[in-house]
Design a protein around this nucleic acid. Structure first.
Lengths: 208, 208
DNA sequence: AGTCAAACTGAACTGAACTCAGGTTGTTTG
DNA sequence: CAAACAACCTGAGTTCAGTTCAGTTTGACT
């Protein structure tokens, strides 16, 4: 499986691009994007602030890259998880479970993505930032289409009652990703329990 | 009904506090908080930038005030909408409908609230900002409790199957508020349709 | 050893948020 | 009425994180 990794093997051996992304995910994920000084990321990687600009055009460019990579990963994981299922209900169940089968770093990436989603709405001034933004936007639409087309397949097979698949898909997706706003690995409820609860909710929402 | 209004009648007759809040809601709601220059808000109100500091300690203080007022309004509206209902299912329906019975300005306020929710997580340096942040946080918990206690009542009455009311409440709330991330009054689907669809989803989620 | 691109740096710049040191306006009170 | 006072406002200056500039260092490969 070609899952989008933070560390790109295409880079030169001396490149610190991957290390910067990892450090940025940690800091942006813990304290938030606005609350994190760009120079702190440099400190953590062990380079001067200006060296960051060798790899990213700006702090926002780094953030947008993180968001795009996370969206790519989410989409890939959805496709991977649902490709072998034929029964619509089982397909929905697999999709929900895959959304919560994530590492701690991926949780941070989801949190960053959700917290800064509105950044994708308005155009960016610089070229490379805009490229990342547009790519991220398209991936958002792709993830939305993953869900809507899954629901539409289930409806046309007669497994789900007919409803507005687009609005329903956005609602399901909204409920799933809302978890990353409050979930912390140190919290009282394990993620597996949340996943099971949401799985049941989604099935009742779409199939009854 | 004492709904929290943006314009506080306690203010002096010359005060532009209300006008600043209205202008800020418009600008923050349309272009986003980070994308809006604080001086643009001053321009719109027709005062110099520094005059803003007579009413708010900072741009963030203004944002936090908007968020707190919107949370207060949401809570009040929930209480108002559910107070006469006795049947748990009807109570849930009323709560969902009330969440979507909003004006265009309130839609912007919800959008601002959702987009900047993560601001409530970390303490603020200045006194007045921190006061608003803590008040907003408590209101978030109050709105969450509105939902969880509604679900718990329904469960103990035997109207809803027993589930983790807290996680379920957060999921329901997450689905509802996720609408403000993508909904625009100019869009193809009217809000009434979205409201009906979500109402059905929530009922199936909690009552079946 | 020489060349080249990738990787890096300290010093200077920018712009938006904010502070300061007062000035103006309207209202209250003797 | 005018003095006193608080609310309201302003232009000039400061701050600080993000960014640009003008080069310098590093290491792989002839």
């Amino acid at each position: 499986m070609a899952r989008a990794r933070i560390v790109d093997p295409e880079e030169g051996p001396r490149s610190k691009r991957g290390a910067i992304l990892v450090a940025a995910v940690e800091r942006f994920g813990e304290d938030g994007y606005e609350n994190t000084k760009w120079s702190e990321v440099a400190d953590r990687v062990g380079i001067g602030q200006t060296a960051l600009y060798h790899y990213f055009e700006s702090k926002a460019h780094c953030l947008l890259t993180i968001m795009r990579l996370e969206l790519q990963r989410s989409h890939d994981q959805f496709v991977e998880a649902t490709k072998d299922e034929t029964d619509p209900v089982e397909e929905v169940r697999a999709a929900v479970r895959s959304a919560f089968a994530v590492t701690e770093q991926e949780i941070r990436q989801m949190r960053i993505l959700q917290a800064n989603m509105s950044l994708l709405a308005t155009p960016r001034k610089s070229k490379r930032e805009e490229t990342e933004r547009v790519a991220a936007r398209q991936l958002v639409q792709m993830v939305e289409r993953d869900w809507t087309s899954l629901l539409m397949r289930g409806m046309s097979k007669g497994a789900f009652p007919l409803r507005d698949a687009h609005t329903l898909g956005l609602s399901v997706l909204g409920m799933i990703v809302s978890v990353w706003r409050w979930y912390r690995p140190t919290g009282a409820i394990p993620l597996s329990e949340i996943s099971e609860m949401i799985e049941g909710c989604v099935v009742r929402m779409v199939a009854e």
